[in-house]
Design a protein around this nucleic acid. Structure first.
Lengths: 218, 218
DNA sequence: GACACCATACCGACCAGTTGGTATGTTTAC
DNA sequence: GTAAACATACCAACTGGTCGGTATGGTGTC
């Protein structure tokens, strides 16, 4: 449909020399997370990326198209970040899962518009009016949940085989805690709530996966 | 500063005959939740409320002022809704808390833009660029958490006096699960994730408040 | 290897519609 | 009568998007 990737030069130039498309996608992550989709104008994006409007509409059919691409760009970045994270090295699936939670806590540093989730921000604003953006966010969020599923399933088989909930539902629960944490981080302009929420979440996982402990009748 | 409340008529008219200010606030709840703050125009609000722009700017200094008032309006409505809910009647504080969670699940009906939270939507978009709106959302969210605190504290004293977490942190955790649930509800256009999340949340509360059950060493 | 041909990447002036906000007039309640 | 509660007409700034044009580098042909 559209050429995504112009031919690489035979010799990689020393400077990164990112093309306009990549620069626009990169700045859109920060800008949209900080101001929201509707409040981020095409001119804002062009100015931040140091490109012109002509370049913008050369690479993207519309502002909406950019948002879809930005959601995909964000997902790809997240996938790479988590794929490279150290927690995968643990032998025990529960340890890997708790490692994921700890890793999420560890990356709560820097500015809000850098560690919060573009997809959550984007979908809140656009779910009713921009179906394609909504769908792109849905794909990104779900695929992140899916990446957790193998570990959750393995942990469940080993530590809570009789639990009533599905591994998938727990995956979404984990992500929901994170998304909700970001909202409170924004409202309080501090990552503290997020950190405490992750401690509660960790505690829930430890309780659910506590080996063979019959629940007390209340 | 501004007259909030015109004198009530001596005789309440049969028809509600809401004034322009109230009508604008009412429609803003739905509209902003559906389209977001930036994408909701003053004209949209006026059209939906059946009033003119003159009326709008008679009652609100600016669009931002309306958003602040809408956040307060939403909080007031929520406070009334939860104050009147049946779960307060239980004798046991834990039962009241679980009753709150069940009540939150029970009101997940109808359209997304009716049961989701205006404050969460609003603060996501505006936290960086509209300090006053952010602050209004923060107040509303925190005061809702505070309304839960007495029950959480009482339940903690009775069932988990030695727990490491604070009642407040659990209150924010509960709200974060809800906010995150709304994001996923929007992304999937279904309340199913929200319902399953609330089941997990309920399960967490039951586990944390399980009477005197020493945690198994993992 | 020179030259025409062409696709891609990018530029920036321009446009029509929309936006938040204003100025001023009219109606209504007490 | 007067002040609050609207209504109407209007505006300047901004917005997403268009359009004619240029720079560059690859490719086929002779």
């Amino acid at each position: 449909m559209r050429t995504r990737r112009p031919k690489k030069h035979a010799v990689e130039s020393a400077a990164p020399a990112k093309d306009a498309r990549t620069k626009l996608l990169d700045v859109s992550l920060t800008l949209i997370r900080a101001k929201g989709y509707a409040a981020t104008t095409v001119d804002d994006l062009c100015a931040a990326a140091g490109v012109t409007k002509g370049a913008f509409f050369h690479h993207f059919e519309s502002k909406e198209t950019l948002a879809v691409a930005a959601a995909e760009h964000f997902s790809a970045g997240a996938e790479a970040l988590f794929a490279a994270a150290p927690y995968h090295r643990a032998d025990d699936p529960l340890e890997r899962l708790l490692g994921y939670v700890d890793f999420r806590a560890a990356i709560l540093t820097g500015e809000l518009h850098d560690y919060t989730c573009l997809l959550g921000t984007l979908v809140q604003e656009t779910y009713a009016s921009h179906p394609q953006i909504r769908a792109a966010c849905e794909r990104g969020l779900s695929s992140h949940v899916e990446a957790l599923l193998p570990d959750i399933e393995a942990a469940k088989r080993r530590y809570a085989p009789k639990a009533a909930w599905s591994a998938e539902s727990l995956g979404y629960f984990i992500q929901s805690v994170l998304q909700g944490s970001f909202i409170f981080s924004k409202s309080k302009q501090s990552a503290q709530v997020a950190r405490r929420n992750l401690a509660h979440l960790r505690s829930y996982l430890e309780l659910q996966f506590a080996p063979a402990k019959p629940r007390a009748a209340r």
